[in-house]
Structures are given as structure tokens and as C-alpha cells.
Design a protein around this nucleic acid. Sequence first.
DNA 1: AAGTCGGGGGG
DNA 2: CCCCCAGACTT
Length: 353
Amino acid sequence: MTPPGDFAQRLLHWRDRHGRTDLPWQRDRTPYRVWVSEIMLQQTQVAVVIPYFERFMARFPGLIELAEADLEGVLAHWSGLGYYARARNLHRAAREIRDQHGGCFPTDLAAVQALPGIGRSTAGAILSLACGQRHPILDGNVKRVLTRHFGIEGWPGKSDVLARLWGLAEGCTPAERVGDYNQGMMDLGATICTRHRPACQDCPVGKSCLARAQGRQSELPAPKPPKALPTRATLMLAVRNADGEILMEQRPPTGIWGGLWSLPEVAAETTPEQWCLTHFGAKPSQVEMLPQRRHTFSHYRLIIQVAALRVETTPNAIGERSDLRWEPIANAQQLGLPAPVSRILLEILNKSA
DNA sequence: AAGTCGGGGGG
DNA sequence: CCCCCAGACTT
């Protein structure tokens, strides 16, 4: 299982000719920019990240601006990207760096990995890409390249398989040009050693690839063992008043959509009329049940039922609850919204216009 | 070791 | 419809 001695050299030579050099975070490769890009790119495809990265950098050009910002604004710039704990951790880490590292991004691997939201692979990526330090990375691209090249069996999410992959990643990493090597491995996985129909004839390390030799490219890496998705249901209330405002509710800081603004949710057994009686002391003047919609997460399927309500009175409890707010419908898109809620509000806005 | 945490791309 | 993507964190 020892890597061929010229593995890294072949990869570096290929990257010099065919690697990606025009991605936004590849110009002005400061630790801050590389860090933000690596966090956004966790479990998220490059093409999706690019516009988010540009908007984020325009608003938070440096670490200090991010640390000084409030979490709400950071979440608003993350809205639609998913995995919102990434944004919360990014914001927390920026303040840690400001307060405990003198505002300078740490250059010690253990110190970087100790920051919230940064694990071993992301720490290695930042320090190799931005600082040239010799650390391996193990993202989805590298896992795919290594499992195929060395014929590693088993799902890479299993700890023993993962440990073997880290050993291979370490063993393949060259002493020089580590940033280019790591970037080259990701380039290779993204453009040649793709999930479907890899372009093995163009691969710089194809001659020593075990999966290619055995024609097993489609079998490696082994897929995640399937499990049945549970289904949950929720009833969201789109409560509008006579001033063209809609009632928004901020979600708890942790859990699904943590810290984002959403629509008030009630248990599926509760009727909108009951909810209005409790919160407004009066029944709604209109109730319209919108068509059900479904939203699928990695671990469950959510059936969303929206009740569109109109009320003529002011809720008697809103003054005591900072997590409830009347918002002009047209302004709601400026808040940090979950993607399905954003679509619901756009639909309501279009229908009323 | 398994579960939690989003949303979209592409087959 | 499906699985996967520049993973990390909690239990």
C-alpha cells in the first residue's frame, strides 16, 4: 500500500498544466480568504459557493470586519447555503482569533484545528494552501482519488476506512509544493476522477490506479449504506396584518435552521384558529391552506403545510417575545431565511402583487 | 460508531 | 427519484 514514488511528481506536473487557477479564493490567498472558502466548501459544490463567497467577501473583507459584525448579518449572508452551524462557528472563531491571537490567523496546526468549525482536513487545507505548510487533506475529492487508486474497500465514512485513507494521504504528500499538491488532488477529483464516468485516459496517475486496472471505477468508493428516511410534518403560519406585514419567528440558536428567521410553527394537531385565539385574542379573518410541500434533509423528510392567515388585531404577546417580529413582506428576504421559507414568502409576495 | 446538520447539482 | 458534495460536531 506504499504510494508509487513519483505519485506526487506526476500530480504536480499535471496541475501545472491543467489545474484550476481562476477560482475566487485562489487570488489573494490570505489565510482568511482560504479559511472562509474552505468552510463554505464543506459538503457544498464549488459552483454553488462562488456567488456566496463573493458576496461574503464584499461585506466582510477581513477577519476584523467579520469579528465586529453581529451574528444576524453573518447568517443573512449564509442564507440558502445550508449547514448554518458553519456560519455560527465561523463568527465565533473570528472573535476567538481577534481576542486570543491578536487578530492574526494562527499558523500552528493544533491551534487552527482548535477553532470551532475547523477539523483536521480544513486545518490542513488552510495551512498548506495559504502558508505552504506540509499537511495532508482528506476531503471528498481526495477520498475518491485514493480509494480508487489504492483499491480501498468499505465506505469512507467508517472510522477504520477513514484511518487508512489518512495514512495514504499522509504517505502521498510530498515535502515540497504541498499547497499545489493538495490543490491538484482536489482539481483531479473535481475534473478527472469524477463520481460518474471518470476521464481515466487523461489521468496523470492512471498507470498505477488499481480501480482502473480492474475496471472497478464505478464501485469505488463504496456507497454509504442506505437507511430509510423518517418523515416529519409541520404546520407553518403565514400571518399577515392589515399593514402588509408578516409575522416572523426566530428559531432557537441550535438545532435545525438555528438562529434563522422562519414562520411560526405549531403542532400539526393545533388549528390556525386556536393559535390565533391564543396569540391575538381573536380569530383570523381569513384562513387559506396552501398546497403541501416537501423538503428533504439528509436524515429526514419534512412535509410543510402552510396556513395563510389574515388578522385585524395585534398579537398581545409579541411585545414580550424578542423572537417574534412583524416584518414587511418585501423586506423579509433580507433576513437569514431557510431556503423553503424563502420560497414560501416569495410565492406569497407574488400572489398578493 | 452513529446521529445531526441544508441545500442544490447531476444522473 | 436517487446519491453526493472542498466535513465537523455531538451523543
